[in-house]
Simulated scan of single mutants.
Amino acid sequence: MNKSRSFASFEDVTMGHKPPKISFEFFPPKSLQASFDLWESLNVLAPLNPEFVSVTYGAGGTTRQLTKEMTEAIGKSYGLDVAAHLTCVNASKAETLAIAKSYVDAGVKQIVALRGDAPKGSAGFCPHPQGFADSVDLVAGLAATNIKTIHVGAYPEPHPEASNANADIDWLKRKIDAGATSAITQFFFASEVFLRFRDRCAKAGIHVPIIPGILPIENWDNVKRFAMRCGASIPASLDAEFNMAKRNEVEDILSVVVATDICSDLMDHGIDQFHFYTLNRPYLTRDVCLALGIVPDAKLALVA
């Protein structure tokens, strides 16, 4: 493994810092086993007292009803603040705003507004004839309602569809100006990637909270393939570390250390909130949060 990797102790990570605020992303289950996995994830992570949890929306709006049902169930069962994902794919403006209203009626106070991925097999994103044209248009539509908290996506490294090096910053600024209240970033593998992005956002006049998206790595080969599709760079040193960890059967340990190192470094630079992409697998995320000094709430554990 990379000898520069910091296998920091619990005390080293938390020294001089308050525990950070956290949030978790889940996706709707599509099978009975996936349902069991989801509820196990919630049972494990809910006691960590997240600021909110988010529920994704499948490509092309394919999990629209599942997202709504899951959002309502989590709120009722765990009392957590749930942020429902909402896209503008395959729906008119009226249909999209009706979905948003149904979330609000169910007690949802936050929306993660995204353009959304095109349906599988299609040539790319194409707006619905009566729909929102893009994520900026969607945010503006939501901001005109009584939804007060609107998160949007942000890309610390160029999105595959970005037209130039500044396009992602410009696009994010437009979404903020349209009414978004915070941004959650795509995952990344080096803290300096986020810090450079944060500084560029500040220079562009973006002053809302920008929450780093953290992905504890369950399967390095799968993550590499996904990273290449979404434009996240892969440090050669990290690839070498995971290849060695796989041979030594210590991948989970390395995953926790990598994510904890990233968060710890960002905390040293004033970052106090992280959004974890759990992939409905809770244990690596839990271990990172514990390493960051987050203490489970015994009362929430009893609820879970």
Rank of each mutant, 00 (worst) to 15 (best):
F7R: 12
A8C: 08
F10R: 12
E11L: 12
D12W: 03
D12T: 11
V13S: 03
V13Q: 01
G16M: 07
P19N: 04
F26R: 01
F26G: 00
P28V: 05
Q33C: 01
A34G: 15
F36H: 12
E40S: 10
L42C: 08
L45W: 05
A46H: 05
P47C: 03
P47V: 04
N49S: 15
P50D: 07
E51F: 03
S54W: 02
Y57H: 11
G60L: 06
G61W: 04
T62P: 00
T62K: 12
Q65Y: 11
A73S: 15
A73E: 14
A73N: 09
K76F: 08
S77C: 05
Y78V: 00
L80G: 04
L80A: 08
V82F: 11
A83K: 02
H85W: 02
H85K: 07
L86W: 06
V89E: 04
A94F: 06
L97P: 01
A98E: 15
S102K: 09
D105R: 11
A106N: 05
I111T: 11
A113V: 07
D117R: 09
G121S: 13
F125A: 07
H128I: 10
P129Y: 08
F132E: 06
V139R: 06
G141W: 04
G141E: 07
A144N: 13
T145P: 02
G153C: 13
A154H: 01
Y155N: 11
P156M: 03
P156S: 06
P158A: 09
H159I: 09
P160R: 12
E161K: 15
E161G: 04
A162I: 07
A162G: 04
A165C: 03
A167P: 00
D168Y: 04
L172W: 00
K173L: 12
R174S: 15
I176N: 03
D177W: 00
G179K: 00
A180N: 01
T181C: 07
F187T: 07
A190I: 02
A190M: 06
S191H: 14
E192H: 14
E192P: 04
L195D: 14
L195A: 10
R196S: 13
R198E: 13
A202M: 10
K203E: 15
A204S: 13
H207V: 14
P216V: 08
E218F: 07
W220R: 03
D221T: 15
D221G: 04
V223N: 01
V223L: 15
K224G: 00
K224S: 09
R225T: 13
M228C: 14
R229Y: 05
R229W: 06
C230M: 12
S237T: 14
S237Q: 14
L238R: 11
E241D: 15
E241F: 04
E241Y: 02
M244K: 15
K246L: 12
R247V: 08
V250R: 15
V250T: 15
L254G: 10
L254I: 10
L254V: 12
L254N: 10
S255W: 06
V256T: 08
V257S: 13
V258M: 07
I262A: 01
D272P: 02
N280D: 09
Y283Q: 13
R286N: 05
L290S: 02
L290R: 13
A291K: 13
G293S: 05
K299L: 06
K299I: 03
L300M: 13
A301F: 09
A304S: 14
